[in-house]
Deep mutational scan, measured.
Amino acid sequence: RPRTRITDDQLRVLRQYFDINNSPSEEQIKEMADKSGLPQKVIKHWFRNTLFKERQ
């Protein structure tokens, strides 16, 4: 599967949610997917990777 490119607008949506809650529920992930147009799987990976980077 090719790598998903996240646009600036999509990144802005993800960052807004991450700043509020870095561990979103399934419902919140679905909401983000609707707003950003990204697949839920991509959003889950983005949150996991971003949380890991923040903790380092």
Rank of each mutant, 00 (worst) to 15 (best):
residue 10 Q to P: 01
residue 16 Q to E: 11
residue 7 T to D: 12
residue 40 Q to S: 13
residue 26 E to A: 11
residue 33 A to V: 06
residue 47 F to R: 00
residue 2 P to M: 15
residue 3 R to M: 15
residue 30 K to A: 12
residue 11 L to C: 00
residue 13 V to E: 12
residue 55 R to E: 07
residue 50 T to K: 14
residue 29 I to T: 08
residue 7 T to F: 02
residue 48 R to W: 04
residue 36 S to H: 10
residue 11 L to P: 00
residue 45 H to R: 10
residue 29 I to N: 02
residue 17 Y to E: 07
residue 15 R to Q: 11
residue 6 I to W: 02
residue 41 K to D: 10
residue 17 Y to W: 06
residue 39 P to E: 12
residue 20 I to V: 09
residue 10 Q to C: 03
residue 46 W to Q: 01
residue 42 V to A: 09
residue 43 I to T: 02
residue 29 I to G: 00
residue 16 Q to P: 05
residue 49 N to Q: 09
residue 31 E to L: 05
residue 44 K to S: 05
residue 28 Q to T: 12
residue 6 I to D: 02
residue 37 G to Q: 05
residue 38 L to A: 03
residue 41 K to Q: 14
residue 24 P to H: 02
residue 41 K to Y: 03
residue 10 Q to I: 02
residue 11 L to F: 05
residue 8 D to L: 11
residue 26 E to R: 09
residue 4 T to Q: 04
residue 8 D to F: 06
residue 54 E to L: 08
residue 19 D to E: 13
residue 22 N to C: 12
residue 22 N to Y: 09
residue 37 G to H: 03
residue 19 D to Q: 06
residue 5 R to D: 15
residue 34 D to K: 13
residue 19 D to M: 13
residue 51 L to P: 05
residue 13 V to K: 10
residue 41 K to A: 10
residue 40 Q to Y: 14
residue 9 D to H: 10
residue 56 Q to R: 15
residue 6 I to R: 01
residue 35 K to W: 03
residue 10 Q to R: 01
residue 1 R to E: 00
residue 28 Q to E: 09
residue 10 Q to K: 03
residue 25 S to V: 03
residue 17 Y to T: 03
residue 10 Q to F: 01
residue 34 D to F: 12
residue 52 F to G: 14
residue 55 R to F: 07
residue 38 L to K: 00
residue 37 G to Y: 03
residue 18 F to Y: 13
residue 31 E to W: 03
residue 47 F to M: 05
residue 31 E to M: 08
residue 34 D to H: 14
residue 8 D to E: 12
residue 8 D to S: 13
residue 36 S to R: 00
residue 12 R to E: 12
residue 55 R to C: 04
residue 7 T to H: 04
residue 30 K to V: 07
residue 41 K to M: 12
residue 54 E to K: 03
residue 17 Y to L: 08
residue 34 D to Q: 08
residue 2 P to Q: 15
residue 28 Q to C: 03
residue 23 S to N: 08
residue 10 Q to Y: 01
residue 10 Q to E: 03
residue 55 R to L: 06
residue 39 P to I: 06
residue 56 Q to N: 08
residue 13 V to T: 11
residue 44 K to H: 08
residue 4 T to V: 08
residue 9 D to C: 15
residue 19 D to N: 10
residue 47 F to G: 01
residue 48 R to S: 08
residue 39 P to N: 05
residue 40 Q to C: 08
residue 8 D to H: 13
residue 13 V to H: 06
residue 10 Q to D: 04
residue 47 F to C: 07
residue 20 I to A: 12
residue 2 P to I: 15
residue 2 P to F: 04
residue 16 Q to K: 14
residue 22 N to L: 09
residue 43 I to F: 00
residue 41 K to S: 11
residue 29 I to F: 07
residue 33 A to S: 10
residue 3 R to V: 12
residue 18 F to M: 07
residue 42 V to G: 05
residue 12 R to H: 08
residue 32 M to G: 00
residue 6 I to G: 02
residue 32 M to C: 03
residue 27 E to W: 03
residue 23 S to E: 08
residue 5 R to P: 15
residue 22 N to Q: 13
residue 4 T to I: 11
residue 17 Y to M: 14
residue 38 L to I: 08
residue 6 I to L: 15
residue 32 M to K: 00
residue 39 P to H: 09
residue 43 I to N: 00
residue 48 R to G: 08
residue 21 N to E: 12
residue 17 Y to C: 06
residue 52 F to S: 11
residue 46 W to F: 07
residue 46 W to G: 02
residue 33 A to H: 15
residue 26 E to H: 12
residue 24 P to G: 01
residue 9 D to S: 14
residue 50 T to Y: 03
residue 46 W to V: 06
residue 14 L to G: 00
residue 25 S to T: 12
residue 55 R to W: 03
residue 31 E to F: 03
residue 25 S to W: 00
residue 38 L to Y: 00
residue 35 K to Y: 03
residue 36 S to K: 01
residue 25 S to G: 13
residue 37 G to F: 02
residue 9 D to L: 09
residue 15 R to L: 05
residue 44 K to G: 08
residue 4 T to N: 15
residue 12 R to P: 02
residue 45 H to Q: 14
residue 40 Q to W: 10
residue 16 Q to M: 12
residue 54 E to F: 10
residue 27 E to L: 09
residue 32 M to A: 04
residue 38 L to C: 08
residue 32 M to L: 06
residue 12 R to C: 10
residue 18 F to P: 03
residue 23 S to F: 11
residue 21 N to S: 12
residue 41 K to E: 12
residue 30 K to D: 07
residue 13 V to Y: 11
residue 41 K to R: 08
residue 2 P to T: 15
residue 40 Q to K: 15
residue 33 A to T: 08
residue 23 S to H: 14
residue 49 N to F: 06
residue 10 Q to M: 04
residue 50 T to M: 10
residue 49 N to K: 14
residue 51 L to F: 05
residue 15 R to F: 07
residue 30 K to L: 05
residue 17 Y to S: 06
residue 52 F to P: 10
residue 33 A to P: 00
residue 13 V to F: 12
residue 22 N to F: 05
residue 45 H to P: 03
residue 22 N to E: 10
residue 5 R to Q: 11
residue 15 R to M: 11
residue 49 N to Y: 08
residue 54 E to W: 02
residue 5 R to H: 14
residue 35 K to V: 04
residue 16 Q to A: 10
residue 32 M to W: 04
residue 45 H to M: 13
residue 5 R to K: 14
residue 7 T to Y: 03
residue 37 G to M: 03
residue 44 K to M: 06
residue 33 A to W: 02
residue 38 L to R: 00
residue 31 E to D: 13
residue 39 P to W: 02
residue 14 L to M: 14
residue 33 A to G: 05
residue 12 R to M: 14
residue 45 H to E: 15
residue 14 L to H: 01
residue 46 W to N: 02
residue 1 R to V: 02
residue 3 R to A: 13
residue 20 I to L: 11
residue 40 Q to M: 09
residue 13 V to S: 11
residue 5 R to W: 10
residue 37 G to R: 10
residue 45 H to C: 06
residue 30 K to I: 08
residue 1 R to I: 02
residue 22 N to H: 15
residue 13 V to R: 05
residue 55 R to G: 10
residue 46 W to K: 01
residue 55 R to I: 09
residue 47 F to W: 06
residue 21 N to Q: 09
residue 22 N to T: 14
residue 34 D to W: 04
residue 44 K to Y: 03
residue 11 L to G: 09
residue 31 E to G: 04
residue 27 E to P: 09
residue 56 Q to S: 02
residue 21 N to Y: 13
residue 27 E to K: 15
residue 21 N to K: 11
residue 15 R to T: 11
residue 21 N to I: 04
residue 52 F to L: 13
residue 29 I to A: 02
residue 5 R to M: 15
residue 18 F to D: 03
residue 32 M to D: 02
residue 50 T to L: 07
residue 33 A to E: 13
residue 27 E to H: 07
residue 3 R to I: 14
residue 50 T to F: 03
residue 50 T to S: 12
residue 36 S to L: 13
residue 8 D to Q: 14
residue 6 I to C: 03
residue 36 S to N: 13
residue 51 L to S: 13
residue 35 K to M: 05
residue 25 S to F: 01
residue 18 F to E: 02
residue 35 K to C: 03
residue 51 L to M: 14
residue 9 D to M: 09
residue 50 T to D: 04
residue 6 I to Q: 02
residue 12 R to S: 13
residue 32 M to H: 01
residue 37 G to A: 06
residue 17 Y to I: 07
residue 41 K to G: 15
residue 4 T to W: 00
residue 49 N to C: 14
residue 18 F to G: 05
residue 44 K to T: 05
residue 36 S to G: 02
residue 21 N to F: 03
residue 32 M to S: 00
residue 48 R to P: 02
residue 11 L to Q: 12
residue 53 K to L: 07
residue 19 D to Y: 13
residue 24 P to K: 01
residue 51 L to Q: 13
residue 51 L to H: 13
residue 33 A to F: 03
residue 29 I to P: 00
residue 10 Q to S: 03
residue 49 N to D: 12
residue 28 Q to G: 06
residue 24 P to Y: 02
residue 48 R to K: 15
residue 33 A to R: 07
residue 27 E to S: 13
residue 16 Q to L: 09
residue 52 F to M: 14
residue 34 D to N: 14
residue 39 P to A: 10
residue 16 Q to D: 11
residue 56 Q to D: 00
residue 25 S to P: 06
residue 32 M to E: 00
residue 46 W to I: 08
residue 48 R to H: 10
residue 14 L to V: 02
residue 3 R to N: 13
residue 7 T to S: 14
residue 35 K to T: 06
residue 36 S to M: 07
residue 47 F to H: 01
residue 16 Q to N: 07
residue 40 Q to L: 14
residue 15 R to K: 09
residue 37 G to C: 11
residue 17 Y to N: 09
residue 54 E to T: 10
residue 36 S to D: 01
residue 13 V to C: 07
residue 28 Q to L: 06
residue 21 N to D: 09
residue 6 I to H: 05
residue 53 K to C: 04
residue 13 V to Q: 13
residue 5 R to S: 14
residue 10 Q to L: 02
residue 22 N to M: 13
residue 7 T to I: 01
residue 8 D to T: 12
residue 1 R to W: 00
residue 2 P to K: 15
residue 43 I to R: 00
residue 21 N to H: 12
residue 25 S to D: 05
residue 18 F to I: 07
residue 53 K to Y: 15
residue 15 R to P: 00
residue 51 L to I: 05
residue 17 Y to F: 13
